[in-house]
Amino acid sequence: MGKPRVAIFDFACCEGCQLQIVNLEEDILGLLGLVQPVEWREALSDRSDEYDIAIVEGSITRAEDEERLRGIRKRAKLLIALGACATIGGVNKLKNACDMEDVRRYVYGRAAAMPHLATEPTRALDEVVKVDYKIHGCPVSRRELGAVVRSLAMGVEPVIPNYPVCVECKLRETVCRYEYNEVCLGVVTRGGCNAPCPAGGGWCYGCRGLVDDPNVNAARDVMDKYGRTPADLQRRLALFNSPGAVSCPKS
């Protein structure tokens, strides 16, 4: 049996997660020992429609994107969503609270009427097709990316953490950011990143999406304890986990 054929695709995103694969540096030799890339826009000039695994970054914002993704899904045995835009919609979802016509005019100005700029509300990949595995983060962690690829190569279910970032703050002895009057999203955000943002003196931005069962009552209690309101939390959540309830700057 030959090496599995892998194709890497991008949709609406900054392509930073795809860049993380290029950034594997010497580990890239290990990766190439396990899989054979057949399409990878940032690193390969070849193209192919025959592949086993599709790794897809970016979110779906246009009808033609949806059609293309459905085609990828049809051809791939396994589809992996790479990075926040693909797994949860990420920052691209900020626009969902706005009128799409406004968004087009605000971003593209006079070119707004061009057909390829017909942007629609943002969707994560799993809102369009079935996604087999998600590698979370903005950007994804190279360590986690490598671990997922190796697990799949061994036929083992990859371990994708499903606990809040608080766990990793405890393990590395980072004092809770609420103690310093910050609003941190770590309490509801999926860990696995090793909590670098709170440790660096910031707060968790929620780029890995919410844990499977965030406890809303508990989140409200934390807000109460520190004299904050659920609106404070929701404002910050809007950046990566936008439910669509933010006001948008008018042009």
Partner: peptide, 13 residues
């Protein structure tokens, strides 16, 4: 349990 975050902070420390 209604008020538990399942963050395990209590257990970890």
């Amino acid at each position: 349990s209604e008020r538990c975050h399942s963050c395990a902070s209590c257990v970890l420390v």
